[in-house]
Design a protein around this nucleic acid. Structure first.
Lengths: 234, 234
DNA sequence: CCAAAAGTGTTGTGCTTACACCCATGG
DNA sequence: CCATGGGTGTAAGCACAACACTTTTGG
């Protein structure tokens, strides 16, 4: 937002930050609430920006993450470059961006990154200077550009991530969690209902998830067992 | 190679062109045979180049395809952006490129495209001004940058392509082909041996592949049946 | 004792793999 | 008749999905 002339007007980065809160998968979105000429922009988009002329794209993504959340050295995965001409086919999106950066844009390629974020961890506070908020995956509105598509692909990416390193699940759950919480998490990630019994079999086969002796308390039904991750067993 | 100052020194495109010849999957590679200072470069790389300052990346890829092969309007799929800092960690690669374009480069992001090419089709002749050749997938040497990795991922991409539109196989085979030819093709794409009997079952289940009455002639063993693609049945 | 959620096993289906012998043709 | 590759069927294992009842707890 400092020196607009420094932007390279053909390449941007966007970050899909995925967290979990109240047993719901959420995505960090920022508001786009400008008025350009007579058009009102009252919707949301992914955190991201154009890269600077001499900037490394990983650095750009890292700085976006840092700016919005304060997170400094988290794992950010570059998962896809979105370069379809159609993604900037809506002239409203282009007009908005051209106005925001005061540059002529035309067609724009974006490199998408994703990261798992522990919502509410001490090291991670959404900077209030941005109109940013965690929006449940199940309640995503229509977003600017092709950001809905980017999020969809990020979810595909998180599946891959879990399949070859399930420890990332531990960032999406409290240290102690019930089978129900874990199941709801999988249901959101795979976007389908999972059978309770089959799921218990699955938990038993996952050696890095261990039963605790502890159970829920003060619930008006049979208390659920707590589980935890055993990070050594991965 | 005209005006070097027009290059944007941070973003390139590379094309993985996949064809089939003599029942072998092949990749188009170009030679890198320069001498820079006292270093000799005697290896191969994927066809590609830096993009121009004001150039659309799809356009850049299309122009690379056109330049090398003469192919004009083929399907080019952008499948991944390679932006790992490690990809330009070999200083020899960077020195070569900096010399070739007469610009300072540092770290470089490339956007990879792939296309299925009918080797030897009339519309498709490798331009002899490039030292380019079709190299069997099974005999790939060590390539410049991370081009071996890019090819590997392109093969993953061709699998996806085949799974949701198997008609692309028809570009890799003659119009009439035997079960053996098709099997060899799958073996190369999936990089493993396929059982003959299981494969015949599979062919029968593929409704878009139809038996012909025709058989091989003048072979010193039982003649193989020919098959063809029925493009209507996809 | 009732409501509410926890926890538990069995069966069937489809997909993938492994495996061995006879057939047709040219020389 | 022999060498060469073409073509065929069956059985086992595994992952996954479907499905219903009993248990525990608080109120």
């Amino acid at each position: 937002m400092t020196n607009n002339n420094k932007y390279y007007p053909h390449l941007s980065v966007d970050c899909v930050l995925i967290g979990c809160e109240d047993d719901q998968l959420k995505i960090l979105l920022v508001e786009r609430t400008d008025v350009v000429s007579n058009e009102k922009y009252n919707d949301k988009k992914l955190p991201g920006r154009l890269i600077y002329m001499e900037e490394d794209i990983d650095e750009a993504a890292i700085s976006v993450l840092k700016e919005y959340t304060g997170i400094d050295n988290s794992y950010l995965k570059q998962f896809k470059c979105f370069g379809s001409p159609k993604r900037t086919s809506d002239p409203r999106d282009v007009r908005w961006l051209e106005n925001a950066v005061n540059l002529q844009i035309g067609r724009l390629v974006t490199v998408a990154y994703m990261s798992i974020v522990k919502i509410g961890a001490r090291s991670n506070k959404i900077d209030s200077k941005f109109k940013a908020s965690w929006v449940p995956l199940t309640k995503l509105p229509q977003l600017a550009f092709d950001h809905n598509l980017i999020i969809e692909e990020a979810i595909g990416e998180i599946r891959k991530l879990i399949e070859n390193d399930p420890i990332v699940l531990s960032d999406l759950l409290p240290t102690k969690f019930t089978a129900l919480q874990l199941r709801r998490l999988f249901e959101q990630i795979y976007n389908k209902e999972i059978d309770v019994r089959n799921f218990h079999k699955k938990i038993k086969s996952m050696k890095y998830i261990v039963e605790l002796d502890e159970k829920e308390e003060n619930v008006s039904h049979r208390a659920a067992r707590y589980y935890k991750f055993d990070k050594k067993k991965i």
